[in-house]
Each structure stands twice: as structure tokens, then as C-alpha cells.
Design a protein around this nucleic acid. Structure first.
Lengths: 297, 297
DNA sequence: CGAACTCTGAAAAAATATTGACAGAGCCTG
DNA sequence: CAGGCTCTGTCAATATTTTTTCAGAGTTCG
């Protein structure tokens, strides 16, 4: 559905639609605009140029490429967008900040997620978090990760990302018959990271008991109902998971996981950076990545 | 609690607080500003004066009475307010950001995640969301899902959960040599769901092109920089992903995914419920679950 | 009724923003 | 490696905005 004119198109859309026509400096600006949308564009041209790290003529060239006659024209449209977003029928953000029953699923869901997040994060003890991050950052300890039906993806994510930051990270196998060999080289002091939210699965408790017998430290991510694994765990973090859906939400857990990833990588930054650089080299050698969509031949 | 200076007060509050100190012409302007708050103040001084029916010096006198050094100073504060309104309508940060903001990694991370979420969700067009949910809920269409290095876990999660709601959902294989057979029974109108955030991987684009040639509809989840797949996609949802970490965050994407899951299951609830019940029976037969920790036996 | 006062906008002055012209830098291509 | 190309910033011009100055209009009060 091609717009004949750029008339009422959103600026965001104009940018994405023409992104491949943009030059490198223009993309710097476009990225900046998108990242701080829409307020960034309300500043004066010199200010905006400085923030984006480019020059004023480039700003002008971009807005002209986007179909505006000049910078004032661009700002005028932007103000209009801000207006409809903020001012008019108490626009979009307000639609989901107040949980009117019967509103759109996006609003209801976002409401629940935000409530879960604030509640989850507000309850975490900073000292406990730091102690756990220290544990996970200790290169002497091997890490093993496991999850249940819903949390499997989370466990997978943690393994992949943490495996970049440090060595000795692996997921436990899915089949219980494969557990004994996997526990074979678990040493005292190694760490088992467990995700276990309701519909606690029997297998998860079993493997925690096995690992505890081997002298492993257990880190548990769970829900407020607290899984049976809690008694075995050295560290325990519980997240709010209820949303308007037939299932529970893993968003708060993911935030925890990502925060731990950030904390661990911060704790041993030289090593992390070194590993990441080597990873980049390997990726480059494998020619796995291409450029963004601008790499015109 | 008297503010010594007008420091961080909201402009609306400043106006109401000093309203009775204002002259008639200034009140005209104040009324206009309040009536079209906050966008009115983003215009230039001549424009604003004309709209309010007064002259530019009066505008200047008002903003000075409000405690600003000049009109640019006033606009700067106003932009800041617009930003906080748009980015985080919940000023609830204080609840768990007690102390210096940006101190503990938990606070910094949570700040970023909340900003990402509000910004991401505020930008989603409800109609587009609904249309896409309709597409995903259509049992006639098969669904295939794929992701990149970071988003793989997300794709996996979507497959598992959506696979409970409806039949015909599968992940694409990881190895590109396995793609052609996987695409073999892709029919016109089937849907390919793609996660592609920066460090866009070449394989993702390739498989999208293949699928598009087969007549598949493409649904893209990406970042604000817009992946090259965007041109091929029927639906495109972009999420904010920046956090204080060496990596990007997939939290906002996960919220999108979970919201879609809720929307799809809602659209075909009888079928979903039926499938979930049968799943429960199967799980029970496999004796996979145990009770919560009260069931000491 | 007139002097002193405040309020207000016109107009000039200063500051700043926007736009255009141009040239150096980098890159493909022959 | 030279010529043509695009991209990008510096600088100058033009336009606009911001601020100041000032005088007329209206009001209050003795």
C-alpha cells in the first residue's frame, strides 16, 4: 500500500521505509532519532547534529530525503505526532497505564508485566544479588543450567549468553537417563542454576537432589509460590509471573537473567572483552554476518 | 515544603501556582498553554504568541515569571517533560530506585528495561497487532519460526507455547542445508515468524527470501534499526533493546511474544482449552508432574 | 483631573537557527 | 592509479527567533 505522498505518514515509518537510501552519516542520525523518538527531533538542528555526532547539513539532507521541505517542516510534523500521542484522546501510553477492563490485550498485558517487574525487582536484596553474581562469575566453578517446560527457553538463553562471558557453562540434558553421565564431572563447589516455576516438574527436583549430593551449590529462579527446590538452594530469586493469559509470564525472570548476565560480565570485564573479541573474529571467519541493509554492492 | 528555586517543578504546576500573579495577557497565554499542554510550548515564540493572541514579549515575560532564564530554557524543560511522559508514564521508579539512580546494576538495568517496554508498547499500532494475531490464529496456515544467535531462545519459546495453542507450528532447522526440505511443504499463505535484531545474520535474510518466494507471509520482530528482512515482511514489530550491558535485551521482544500468545489463544479459546486439557491428560499419564512442596508422601 | 503606575505591543538589536555553496576525503571503476 | 562519483563537513548567506528598548494605552488614587 504505497503512500502517494508522505502526507500523514509517521516519521518513524518514513525512516524505516527509506533506510536503505540513507548514507552512513544519515543512518547515524536516523538511529539517534529512532532511539530517542520523538523528543530528539524537537531540538534545534545544531543540537540534534551534535547529539547524533554529525553536521547540520547532514540533518537537513536527511529530513529532505524523508520528504520534508526543510527542518521546520519536519519539526512541525513531529510536533503533530507528539500531540496525537500525548494530548488527544489521552493517547496510547495512557491507554495501557490505566487498566480499564475490556481494553486491548496489549494494554492489559503490559499492565500486568509492569506490575510484575516492579514488584519482582523491588523485592530483590542487593547484597544477595551481588553474592550470587560473585558465585556465577567465579571461573573456578563450572555452571550447569536446567529448566522446566516453560522455562526451558530461559535456561537455553542463559547458557548461550553466559557461555560467551566465561567458560564452563553448559545446559543439562533433557532426558533423565542422560543425567548421571552429565553429573559425573561435577565437582564440589560447582553451581547448578535451576528454573522452576509452577507445575513444578518432578525431574527438576530430582536432579537438584543429585547435584546437591555431589556438593554443588544451587541457584534457584522461581515464582512466589516457591518450588520444592528452595530447601536445597543456596540462592533463591522469586519473580512475579501472573498475566492475563492461560500461562504464566517469564518476563520478570528474563529481566533477572539479563541483569545477572550484565553483572557477571561487569565483574570480569577484561576476560569477557577478550572472549567477545575472539568470538567476533571467529564469526568473521565464518562469514556468518552481513551488514545492515545498506551494504550496497 | 517550599522550593527555593523552581528547579524541577512541572511547568503546569508552576503556572497554576503563580496564576494570580499574572497579568491579563499573560493569563491568555497561560490558558492556551494549559489547554494544549505540552505541545503548544514546543512551537517558536512568534507562533505561540499568535496562537494565544498576544505578543512575543508577553510570552517572554511569562516564562520569566515562571522562573526560566529565557524561552530556550523553558522549552528545554518542556521537552524533558514530554520525554518523561512518553518514555515512562510511570514515575514509579522511585519505588525501587531508592537512593542514587544508576547506583546498583539492578536499578540501572531495571530503569532501562522499563523505558524500553513503555517505549516499545506505546508505539504498537493496535490494528496492526490485531491483524497479525488474526493471521497467527488462522488454523489453515502453517507457522514456521526462526531466530538468530540471541533471539534463538525466543523463537524456541514461541514454538513451544504456540504449539500448545494450535497445530502446525514448528521451528526451522538451524543448519541451512536443512532448509530446503523444511520449506518443501510450505504452502502459499503459510507464515514465517522471524526474529532478527542487530548483528543481523545472513542466514536469516536468506531463508526469508526463500520463504517469500514460496508465497509465505513474513512476520518480523526486530529492533528500531530495522533488519533487512523488513522489506519482505507483511508485519513488522520493532522493540527497544538497549540496556547497560555488552548485549542487547530481549525483554521487550518477549513481552511482545507473550502478548501475541495471549491474543492467539483468546481468539480460538475453545480449541485452545480442548488442546490444553488433552495435554494435561497426557502429562498425567506420563506422571511427569509432582505436587508443590506440601505433598510429602 | 492629573500624576504615577502597570500593562502591552511595535520595532529594533542581538543571537541563533536554517539553508546553500563548495571543497576535501574516500571509494569504486576502468 | 587516475577520473568520476558520492558523501560529508566547513564556512558563508540568509532567515528566523529571541531579547531588549521604548512609547502609548489604560488604571488607580490622591
Amino acid at each position: 500500500m504505497p503512500q502517494d505522498a508522505a502526507g500523514s505518514e509517521q516519521i518513524e515509518q518514513r525512516i524505516t521505509a527509506r533506510y536503505d537510501l540513507l548514507s552512513p552519516a544519515e543512518r547515524l542520525l536516523a538511529d539517534h532519532l529512532m532511539r530517542h523518538y520523538p523528543v530528539a527531533g524537537l531540538f534545534s538542528m545544531p543540537h540534534l547534529a551534535k547529539e547524533a555526532g554529525i553536521s547540520t547539513p547532514t540533518v537537513l539532507r536527511l529530513v529532505q530525503k524523508l520528504g520534508f521541505r526543510g527542518y521546520p517542516d519536519f519539526q512541525s510534523q513531529l510536533r503533530h505526532e507528539v500531540e496525537t500521542r500525548l494530548e488527544s484522546p489521552l493517547a496510547k501510553h495512557e491507554r495501557w497505564t490505566q487498566g480499564v477492563p475490556g481494553s486491548h490485550i496489549l494494554n492489559r498485558f503490559a499492565d500486568a508485566v509492569l506490575a510484575n517487574l516492579t514488584s519482582t525487582l523491588g523485592r530483590i536484596d542487593h547484597a544477595e544479588f551481588d553474592a550470587c553474581a560473585d558465585l556465577l562469575a567465579d571461573p573456578q566453578r563450572q555452571l550447569r543450567v536446567t529448566g522446566g517446560r516453560i522455562t526451558h527457553a530461559l535456561a537455553d538463553y542463559l547458557v548461550r549468553q553466559l557461555g560467551i562471558v566465561r567458560p564452563g557453562v553448559a545446559a543439562l540434558p533433557a532426558l533423565s537417563s542422560a543425567w548421571p553421565p552429565a553429573l559425573l564431572d561435577l565437582r564440589r563447589g560447582d553451581v547448578l542454576i535451576v528454573f522452576d516455576i509452577r507445575r513444578y516438574e518432578s525431574g527438576v527436583l530430582q536432579i537438584c537432589e543429585l547435584a546437591a549430593d555431589c556438593g554443588a551449590e544451587i541457584v534457584l529462579f522461581t515464582d512466589p509460590w516457591t518450588s520444592p527446590v528452595a530447601d536445597l538452594a543456596r540462592f533463591r530469586f522469586s519473580a512475579q509471573i501472573e498475566v492475563p493469559s492461560a500461562w504464566d509470564s517469564t518476563v520478570a525472570l528474563l529481566v533477572l537473567v539479563e541483569t545477572f548476565l550484565a553483572a557477571v560480565q561487569e565483574r570480569n570485564w577484561p576476560t569477557t572483552r577478550d572472549r567477545m573479541e575472539r568470538l567476533e573474529v571467529l564469526y568473521a571467519q565464518a562469514r556468518l554476518f552481513r551488514r545492515g541493509r545498506g551494504s550496497r554492492g
